[in-house]
Write a protein that binds this DNA or RNA. Structure first.
Lengths: 155, 155
DNA sequence: ATGTATGCAAACCATTTGCAATGAC
DNA sequence: GTCATTGCAAATGGTTTGCATACAT
């Protein structure tokens, strides 16, 4: 899609600017990883990213994956989440409709939850002696399926 | 303090109810851990809990610590947080003035942030097909000290 | 008496690190 | 040519697991 290509160009440029500003080298590995994320991987963990890179026949080591991810986090092109398990999840940060997360404490399913009012209220908070850059709101509870199962159990 | 003792009694009873309901044994280790948390450890990680238990001359294995913490999480007497590093933090959940968290992305300091309006708005949200039990709001940014340092750097 | 919980040590697994080889500049 | 970056393999460190022993019931 044209729009996606445009976004890809923008994030590549932002990445280039960041790398230049920080005197980092512009390696093909780094751009390939960014490309994959902004083409195929809206949400992902390290393992699936590693395999997706392999599938594209662009083999990178895990070390490079972690190194690059740190850069992408630093320049805010990627967000990192930890939902209570010991796995880190990542998602695109640029032009990714902002959302909150609903986490089922039973089956660990994660849903996106968009709510403009919540976003506005949280973003407009003035906080003393703190300069906010971004936030994560995780709401824990039971997804619909698990709530039904719990109900059935009690009867 | 009297009030603290009362709270301790209440959480012990809640724990007892949970253990009974789930056919778990009421071991001295489990109660000693709960006692420590609700007496001395408002916020803690596993390592500091382990050492604090030792200082009380009540040695427990890390395995027991993890096992017990899972029970305390299940019965909602303890909350778990992960702020982006690979360490899990815990805090009391019962009668612990609810608060959000401010995380400095530079020095990783964590501050509590109380805001009744935010809490109300978030708690009163009706979410379709999801039954919330609790939530975590993490606001990332620069603490006062780090913001000053950044400013100085740029000049 | 039964079987759950404990302590210990080993295993696990995501992430990090050290180092020689590669390649961006 | 120089030095940051890569891949690899080993190390790290928080958490989990297996198993024999202890102990709550």
């Amino acid at each position: 899609m044209d729009k996606d290509n445009k976004i890809l160009e923008i994030v590549k440029q932002k990445f280039t600017e960041y790398l230049t500003a920080n005197k980092c080298r512009k390696t093909p590995e780094r751009y390939a990883i960014l490309d994959l994320i902004y083409t195929d991987q809206r949400h992902f963990d390290m393992d699936s990213l590693y395999e997706a890179m392999n599938k594209r026949n662009f083999r990178v080591s895990r070390a490079t994956l972690y190194n690059t991810m740190q850069l992408l986090l630093d320049c805010k092109l990627v967000l990192k989440h930890q939902f209570g398990q010991n796995i880190s999840f990542y998602e695109r940060a640029y032009n990714n409709d902002f959302h909150h997360h609903l986490i089922c404490t039973n089956c660990h399913e994660i849903q996106e939850y968009k709510d403009a009012e919540l976003r506005t209220v949280i973003q407009n908070k003035k906080i003393k002696r703190f300069t906010p850059s971004h936030y994560s709101l995780y709401i824990y509870g039971l997804c619909n399926a698990c709530a039904k199962k719990e109900k059935a159990k009690k009867i």
